[in-house]
């Protein structure tokens, strides 16, 4: 994960991504994506939006989740129809 997302030009050191997570050792990574999305929003709810360490989860779920899923969940949260516990 790039520490600075807007940094240009990119270098080889910027090639970083979400690490292997032993909670999700299988081919099915659906829950790695979803759990990171939940963790990010729980983290922000508890520690406030300015708390930098929360962004770790955000980088994980942006790397892992299909963008369409994230957009769908964001809409659901705005409309109050998100089924997860944040």
């Amino acid at each position: 994960m790039a520490p600075a997302q807007d940094k240009m030009p990119l270098t080889l050191e910027d090639l970083k991504t979400a690490p292997f997570d032993p909670r999700f050792p299988n081919q099915n990574q659906t829950r790695y994506c979803y759990q990171s999305y939940l963790d990010f929003h729980r983290c922000q709810r508890i520690r406030g939006e300015e708390y930098e360490p929360c962004n770790y989860f955000k980088r994980v779920f942006t790397s892992i989740c299909p963008n369409e899923w994230v957009e769908k969940w964001d809409t659901q949260r705005e409309e109050g129809t998100f089924p997860g516990n944040i």
């Binding site: 659906t30 829950r31 979803y34 998100f82 089924p83 997860g84 516990n85």
Partner: peptide, 11 residues
Amino acid sequence: AIELGMNWPPK
């Protein structure tokens, strides 16, 4: 499933 928010019973 994640579609249920991983809750049982669902919300």
